[in-house]
Amino acid sequence: MAEITLKDIIKEENLVYKRSKIMTNKTLSYCPGCGHGTAHQIIAHTIQDMGIQEQTIGVSPVGCSVLMYDFLDLDIQQAAHGRAPAVATAIKRLMPDKFVFTYQGDGDLAAIGTAETIHACNRGENITIVFINNGIYGMTGGQMAPTTLAGMPTSTSPYGRDTSMMGNPLKITELLAMLPGTYYVTRQAVHTPRAVRQTKKAIRKAFENQKLNRGVSFVEIVSNCNSGWKLPPVKANEWMVENMFPFYPLGDMKVDGELVNK
């Protein structure tokens, strides 16, 4: 049997994941092992697969993904902290035939932007919201987030989140699923190839739903923050599976406007 060389392996048909044309050549500003890059790639592939680059406007948040406009080859507005759903509301209302999405972290979406998030969802704005939940403020250096788990140490809860003093972690996605304005609400992850495939399906559905004009499609991605959690990437993913997933269980909460019974 002839020896298999690299040349034999590097073939189009052997590709599992290919860099999307919607991704720019700019080097990602994210830490090695961070889920943001994978989430970006999924969105880029979805837009490419649907052929909607020219019809898509993105809204980036404040936080680690503030520079999303450097990485996705799309028309993008960068919103003030927490205000992305308000910005997206206006874009979609003025251009209802376009695909409009926001990309937000937990501090942005579930703390400072709670009002904008809830009211955009309650009005049933016909937009897609991608919510990255890693339970920490990454960009500012690992402070406590609204989704920080009970007992979890951060730089502003150095002895662990004491819920009697600092409040409880907020399951905002469950809350949003209860609103009549949300049409599709799901919680996914990007830490394994299987999870990536599942998330890709969810993001595709969340974008396709905009054609139906039925309300918000909301995709939470539970992700890691190696730097903020002070763990190497593999360990961080293990910690996420052991600690984050039990509190933030993966799966659909609302599909086609109907709550999913579990």
Binding site: Q77, A79, A86, V87, R93
Partner: peptide, 26 residues
């Protein structure tokens, strides 16, 4: 013309940002 009552002044001005960013008279 689109007219919308926002949930706050904060939200309203950010809606203005979004619309203005699309070149709209807002």
């Amino acid at each position: 013309m689109v007219v919308l009552q926002a949930e706050s002044e904060v939200s309203a001005i950010n809606m203005v940002y979004g619309a203005a960013g699309c070149g709209r008279m807002v």
